[in-house]
């Protein structure tokens, strides 16, 4: 279970800290290793949490300079440090998808992504889909098709749909069902979710992002 850590809770006075380890690899290599190219990862270092590192995160087009502990997840930093509570904790182990965000346009579970890994990448959350006061086309489609019930999984569903449509602007129903299957909806709103994704695809054709 991921837990909410606190500044300076643990120290690592000697030896290789996770921070030092990550630092030696360089942000780009870390990101490459953790964002989908497992072949490049080095063996994991076991280390206690350490003193916070400076990190610059690009979230929804805004640059944030933060001190984060290396073990903090992106979800933790988004919610507890940046106040972006749209991304939801549902399982904190990459099973439910309620925390899905886009990293460089690709859907990722923020609970399985370290905040440090996101440095140098463009992070988009549900809050970043608004066009000023207006809903984005995917959000509009979810509202119009009643593609939610309790709403807790909805931000994650919308981010997954957004990622799917960026990769595949005109998906078939089978591709939508498969593409959205990393996001659980216990209310079972799937039929409306599939309709919403189709509607969003149509809307985006007409000049949507």
């Amino acid at each position: 279970m991921a837990r909410k850590p606190r500044d300076n809770e643990h120290t690592c006075p000697h030896g290789v800290s996770r921070r030092g380890f990550l630092g030696s690899l360089g942000a780009g290599a870390v990101a490459a290793a953790t964002l989908g190219r497992p072949g490049e990862t080095a063996p994991p270092e076991v280390a206690d949490a350490v003193e916070p590192s400076k990190v610059t995160l690009l979230v929804n087009g805004r640059r944030h300079r933060l001190l984060v502990e290396p073990r903090w997840t992106l979800l933790h930093v988004l919610r507890e440090r940046l106040g972006l509570t749209g991304s939801k904790p549902g399982c904190e182990r990459g099973e439910c998808g309620a925390c899905t965000v886009l990293i460089d346009g690709v859907p990722r579970y923020a609970c399985l992504t370290l905040a440090l890994e996101a440095e140098g990448h463009e992070v988009t959350t549900i809050e970043g889909l608004m066009r000023g006061e207006e809903l984005g086309p995917t959000q509009q489609a979810f509202a119009a098709e009643d593609a939610f019930q309790c709403g807790y999984c909805t931000p994650g569903q919308i981010m997954a749909a957004e990622g799917l449509l960026r990769a595949k602007p005109a998906p078939t129903v089978a591709e939508i069902r498969l593409g959205m299957s990393g996001n659980l909806c216990r209310c079972g709103a799937y039929p409306h979710i599939v309709k919403a994704v189709r509607r969003a695809a149509e809307a985006r054709k007409g000049g949507g992002r």
Binding site: R79, T125, L129, A143, D146, Y152, T154, I158
Partner: peptide, 21 residues
């Protein structure tokens, strides 16, 4: 009918405040 639900806008923008928020 099918008018949008009262909580549609809040839920699709992630602005509904659940207790963890």
């Amino acid at each position: 009918g099918r008018h949008p639900r009262i909580d549609a806008a809040a839920k699709v923008t992630g602005s509904t405040r659940y207790v963890a928020d």
